[in-house]
Design a protein around this nucleic acid. Sequence first.
DNA 1: AACCCGTGGGC
DNA 2: TGCCCAAGGGT
Length: 385
Amino acid sequence: MWPEEKIQAFRKALLDWYDAAGRDHLPWRLNNDPYRIWVSEIMLQQTQVITVIPYYNRFMALFPSIKELAEAEEDVLLKAWEGLGYYSRVRNLQKAAQQIMADYDGVFPNQPEEIIKLKGIGPYTAGAISSMAFGLPEPAVDGNVMRVFSRVFEIGDDIAKPATRKIFEGLVRVLIDPDRPGDFNQAIMDLGTDICAPKNPRPEESPIKDFNQAYQNGTMHLYPFKSKAKKPVPKTMQGIVIQSGDHFLLEKRPESGLLANFWTFPLVEENWGDWPKIEQINFLVAEPAPLNEEGMHALNTFLDEKVKMTAEQIQPAVGSLTHVFSHRKWHITVHHVVVEGMKEDLPENMQWVSRFDFPDYAFAVPQQKMWEIIWKENRKFLQSF
DNA sequence: AACCCGTGGGC
DNA sequence: TGCCCAAGGGT
């Protein structure tokens, strides 16, 4: 490790640059309120600043305090998070708020060992809150920090491995400025988003270029090392949009797993008839196609079993869409089915919902895409109701 | 440790 | 277009 003088020079170079060029306008940097910082850190997990800002402002207006967050309805929470992704974040956020109400009398705990006990707060977020809200010299090691210091110290460990984070935590514990730990952590992250970017970094502009071993040695292209992620697994599905007047049949997804608790137009995961098999999807895009006899039979069985109705009108395969998650890739062929009346003996997780009430329901992006297809293809038809 | 969990932007 | 990336955490 560097001698003490060099460490102090590093801190000064970094923080002088941060004071001059850091992003002091971000809404969560308004003050040091742990609640405001906490919510921002959860939203910022694997999500870019520019995406978070509008969600953050709306969320803080809806839930201005820990107490109001703890008492919110889950549907309202999901609606506030709609489109942000990684929805377990907001469920855990509320669980933690309830923990704080029950265990800490509604006051955010100020010790790292307590903070990390809260649901949804791991090593990074605990360090971020500890340093930024409470001025404690705790490391907050995210992707930016690993990228910056892998270059500064020419560290070739795979940053995709969980164990690698500990190496960088050890470094930051030594380097962090004890007088300004929150600013130190944020300065490294601000540096990592622009100058020390993943692609096309500009190390010659860096305030710490003299400390950057990889830059000095011409090895910038080697750092950080990151093993490749697996490709998303493709899956074909049939999306069934069932309409009765201005009402549509919605299904609530299970309470765990992908898009848990979201409302969706029913999705049938099995292939019908000669629809492309899953293993073929790597090579062809699922084109919308009319239902063959077998497919039509499967659709009527679905209607009979789930909705206990028969179709008055079927517009099969009005469109198709692809949606890529971090680990899965959905190919959905969308069908439009019009029925007469609304039978009420539905399964527990199904409801008829007026399209005018859709704004009250949380829809993940695949469902928004399904609705766009129906809306565009049937605009005139829908507006006649 | 490896897998699960979303979405949008950049190139 | 496909791939990488983003202020990660839970299990």
